[in-house]
């Protein structure tokens, strides 16, 4: 168990930023922490790495209590902050080696690790450039290089892909997978659902400081979704269709809205071909069809009544 959190509470005055959270993260997984801006993700992470003192609760990293072992525990953690945290008037090389030295790296090991980190993020050729001269994507990558130079066992990435071009974003997502393959446990926070779906094995969803769901992708979807929804766009709708469709096994409801037919079925009814048969029997052409499978987005929507991007 890399991270173990029990009943974590953090208040800012009257504002309850983190409300009684418990979760555990296993060795070697990419753990997604999902939630809209202001959900309490960053606060939870800050408590996790000892930057803020929690008001209540227990945090264990690598099976150890944080207090008293800050030094040895912090050495195993790398953090990629949400906002770029770089010295603009230092070169890429100087930035990375400055932070490496804070983790106690020296001499030959220092040089090889810095080179490794810069090569890993594709910045080795730009090592002599000042950080302020880099493009947006490169800055993000340098932001990561500074966090991984000491090869931490646990890497915490707080929204590492905010505001960059798709290419750099792919590069970063690839890097995350690679780092994980090399053996690092990764906590990845984001409000981009697709990224989390692509990367993470297990996910926790936060909103208003509360942990509202956790589990694997499949578990979460299964836990939430009880119905499947299929939408058809038809050339013509006559009401006999609704009657026949409603006879199909598993169909719970069928609604007509203009030329659109929406069918709601029970989970795993496998009745799509039968429904289509009914429609063709009524001599209507299917112009388009949309099967709505549950995504994390819908999971979140169902849980909170709002979309993530709100």
């Amino acid at each position: 168990m890399v991270v173990e959190i029990k009943d974590l509470v953090k208040r800012y005055g009257d504002f309850l930023a983190v409300d009684n959270i418990s979760l555990s993260i296993d060795d070697g997984e990419i753990f997604g922490l999902l939630g809209p801006n202001g959900a309490g993700k960053t606060t939870a992470i800050n408590c996790m790495i000892g930057m803020q003192k929690q008001d209540k609760g227990q945090i264990k990293l690598f099976g150890q209590d944080f207090t008293g072992r800050e030094g040895s525990i912090k050495k195993e953690i790398g953090i990629v902050p949400q906002d770029l945290a770089l010295y603009w008037d230092l070169t890429c090389y100087e930035n990375v080696s400055f932070f490496a030295k804070l983790y106690g790296l020296k001499d030959g090991l220092l040089r090889s690790r810095v080179q490794e980190a810069l090569e890993f993020t594709g910045l080795w050729d730009r090592r002599k450039d000042l950080a302020k001269k880099l493009s947006g994507g490169m800055k993000r990558r340098l932001n990561i290089a500074c966090a991984i130079v000491h090869q931490p066992k646990l890497i915490i990435m707080d929204e590492p892909t905010v505001g960059i071009d798709p290419q750099s974003r792919n590069h970063i997502l690839q890097s995350v997978k690679e780092l994980n393959k090399k053996g690092s446990t990764i906590i990845y926070t984001s409000h981009y659902m697709e990224e989390v779906e692509e990367l993470c094995s297990r996910i926790a969803i936060m909103d208003h400081g509360k942990l509202i769901a956790k589990g694997t992708k499949e578990e979460l979807k299964a836990f939430i979704t009880v119905e499947e929804k299929t939408e058809f766009e038809l050339s013509s709708v006559n009401y006999t269709i609704t009657d026949t469709v409603k006879q199909v096994s598993g169909v719970k409801d069928c609604v007509v809205d203009g030329s659109r037919l929406t069918v709601i079925s029970e989970k795993n009814s496998r009745n799509l071909s039968k429904i289509i048969d009914c429609i063709s029997a009524a001599e209507a052409d299917i112009l388009s069809m949309n099967i709505e499978k549950p995504t994390l987005e819908t999971v979140f929507l169902t849980l909170t009544g709002r979309t993530l991007r709100d």
Binding site: G50, G71, I79, A85, Y87, L102
Partner: peptide, 13 residues
């Protein structure tokens, strides 16, 4: 301002 305070705080310093 540079946010590097976060890194400094998370480093074993």
């Amino acid at each position: 301002r540079l946010n590097t305070s976060i890194r400094l705080a998370s480093a074993p310093v």
